[in-house]
């Protein structure tokens, strides 16, 4: 089960942002290891597309904008760090990345154009990247142990594409 909500907010300094939330309600909260053999599992995953738009000083009527894909999860109480695996459409990178934070933030679209065009070609850029790249995450624990891998989260995608209406 998933929950989809939208929000829009304004940030000081002429920066506008909008967020689309895709909350994976089915994901369980982070589970402590609790001394049992149960592997640590991350939970509380949220996937968000975040837009930022700025007016360009000295260039009236033009904007610079970017869209970021954010994946965040709840901190696991026993995690020393988090390990990230990247899957591309050409294969899985043999390099695992390690980070302390509980989020991934990646630019998936950007542009500079007339303000009247809005975020020109934004959706197209996101469609092109969607599914080309995905991440999964696990907790790194003490004694060189690791938790369970999460599901894969395709970069750029916050839900199924709209249904096919024919055409071509």
């Amino acid at each position: 089960m998933v929950k989809l909500t939208a929000a829009r907010s304004r940030i000081a300094g002429g920066l506008y942002g909008s967020l689309l939330f895709f909350v994976l309600a089915a994901a369980s909260p982070a589970q402590a290891d609790s001394g049992s053999d149960a592997p640590a599992r991350l939970g509380g995953f949220e996937v968000v597309l975040e837009d930022e738009t700025r007016e360009i000083p000295g260039r009236a009527g033009r904007i610079r904008w970017a869209t970021y894909w954010n994946l965040a999860w709840d901190a696991h109480p026993q995690a020393l760090a988090y390990q990230i695996e990247t899957m591309t459409s050409e294969g899985v990178s043999p390099k695992l990345k390690t980070q302390d934070g509980t989020f991934i933030k990646l630019e998936v679209a950007s542009g500079e154009n007339k303000k009247s065009l809005g975020m020109d070609k934004r959706d197209l850029q996101i469609a092109l990247i969607s599914g080309q790249l995905s991440y999964r995450v696990r907790a790194l624990l003490a004694d060189n142990r690791a938790g369970e891998w999460s599901a894969h989260f395709p970069v750029g995608r916050i839900g199924a594409p709209p249904p096919w209406k024919g055409g071509g």
């Binding site: 591309t88 050409e90 294969g91 899985v92 043999p94 990646l106 950007s110 070609k121 850029q125």
Partner: peptide, 21 residues
């Protein structure tokens, strides 16, 4: 054309790694 995104760059770097492997 459109701009190459950070996501594109991560994708390309990892494709390079897969193929060097």
């Amino acid at each position: 054309t459109v701009p190459v995104s950070e996501a594109d760059r991560v994708f390309m770097h990892d494709v390079v790694h897969v193929n060097t492997s």
